[in-house]
Amino acid sequence: MNGKQNGRKKPWGALLLWGALSLGLYAVVFLKGDAVQGFIAEGGVGKAAIVVAVAIIFSLVHGNFTGAFFEALGIRAKGR
């Protein structure tokens, strides 16, 4: 790690953006949890595709948030 890396700008904007989006997604699924689960539990090709799509959207949005979270804390991979 060098000085330039340490002085890297903290991604506060990205943290807030991805954090708000992630919170929004979790709020939708958990406030409407029973309805969402009732719908998914019917099974079938369409519902399976929806489950996969939702999981990927969550992983990208929440994954970007957790990435920005550690970056903001200054915990980042050491350059090899």
Binding site: V29, V36, Q37, I40, A41, E42, G43, G44, V45, K47, A48, V51, V52, V54, A55
Partner: peptide, 8 residues
């Protein structure tokens, strides 16, 4: 998920 077993 096709069989409806996944709890999202």
């Amino acid at each position: 998920a096709y069989s409806g077993y996944v709890d999202l």
